[in-house]
């Protein structure tokens, strides 16, 4: 018998068995399903209630309760506190981007791996064509499944606990940066450094040991040694993806020409820590 014929025979036998010795969906299976449905609704109502009643309203926003605050601050496109954080079920993708380095391989993390995973999932029934269903007799499938769960779980956990750069802490590091880089006497670069520390750049970029290395952002400690020039830096800040196609960095045009000049001067003055 070919495997397709065996499959068909299996399913025919399945249908006969179910017809002969099965139980009717109503009421048996439906009872289990309905019980579970009540549990799901109850859990959702419970979460909503705990969320609301443990978070306290304070002025404009709220203090976080057991399940977080009721609302964050209102979005401000011109704001300088840039903290991109997706919903928790995207953490694994979010953290995946830390593993890849801009610009060579970051596309693997943003598009490559998620697409490949999705394709593999879609194709699973055609990859695993054996008739065997018992988990213990499908070691390859089980090990692959466990590895995927462990990997996604770890990435989600790492994403959830990833440290965020705090603007005030970063700002206090500016004199250290200036000493290391030797731009303490340049007031424009100093102003740019403060702006850099406060604008959330360190959420993604690393600068002389501070910052996050998120989303595949390059380290900027020695950005000035690349010889790109202040004009290039300003253009890049205004529209990153116009200058380096494919860059996920947001545009910072909203900061204004004056501030961008300061930032660019600071970046060009960063020749690498001594």
């Amino acid at each position: 018998m070919s495997s397709l014929e065996k499959n068909r025979a299996d399913h025919k036998r399945y249908k006969e068995d179910v017809k002969r010795e099965g139980k009717p969906f109503f009421p048996y299976a439906l009872f289990h399903d309905s019980f579970m449905q009540v549990v799901v609704v109850a859990v959702i109502i419970g979460l909503a209630t705990i969320w609301k009643w443990t978070a306290e309203d304070v002025g404009g926003g709220t203090n976080p309760g057991l399940l977080g605050s009721l609302y964050e601050e209102k979005a401000d496109p011109g704001s300088t506190s840039f903290v991109p954080r997706p919903d928790w079920y995207y953490y694994f993708l979010f953290y995946l981007l830390r593993i890849f380095k801009w610009p060579d391989s970051v596309i693997l993390g943003t598009v490559g791996i998620p697409t490949i995973l999705l394709m593999l999932l879609l194709a699973l029934p055609f990859i695993d064509r054996r008739r065997e269903r018992h988990p213990l007799r499908r070691p390859v499938a089980m090990i692959a499944g466990i590895l995927v769960i462990v990997a996604m779980g770890t990435l989600t956990w790492k994403g959830a606990t990833a440290k965020e750069a705090v603007a005030s802490e970063s700002a206090s590091a500016v004199p250290t940066w200036a000493a290391k880089q030797g731009f303490a006497n340049d007031p424009v670069a100093m102003a740019g450094a403060t702006l850099f520390a406060q604008s959330g750049c360190l959420t993604c970029h690393v600068y002389t040991g501070s910052g996050g290395a998120n989303l595949g952002a390059p380290e900027l400690t020695a950005e000035g040694s690349k010889g790109l020039g202040i004009d290039w830096q300003i253009k890049h800040l205004e529209c990153p993806s116009c200058v380096t196609p494919g860059s996920p960095m947001p545009a910072f045009k909203a900061l204004g020409a004056d501030n961008l000049k300061k930032l660019a001067t600071f970046l060009e003055a960063s020749k690498g820590a001594k």
Binding site: E72, K74, A75, V83, R85, P248, M249
Partner: peptide, 30 residues
């Protein structure tokens, strides 16, 4: 998952806004 992504922006708060900026930029990378 896409439904979650589109719904995340709707409250128009700071975290969601910037996450969406980056999310769309990543999408545009494809």
């Amino acid at each position: 998952m896409i439904e979650g992504f589109t719904g995340y922006l709707l409250p128009w708060d700071e975290t969601a806004y910037w996450a969406t900026v980056v999310g769309i930029n990543i999408q545009a990378n494809g």
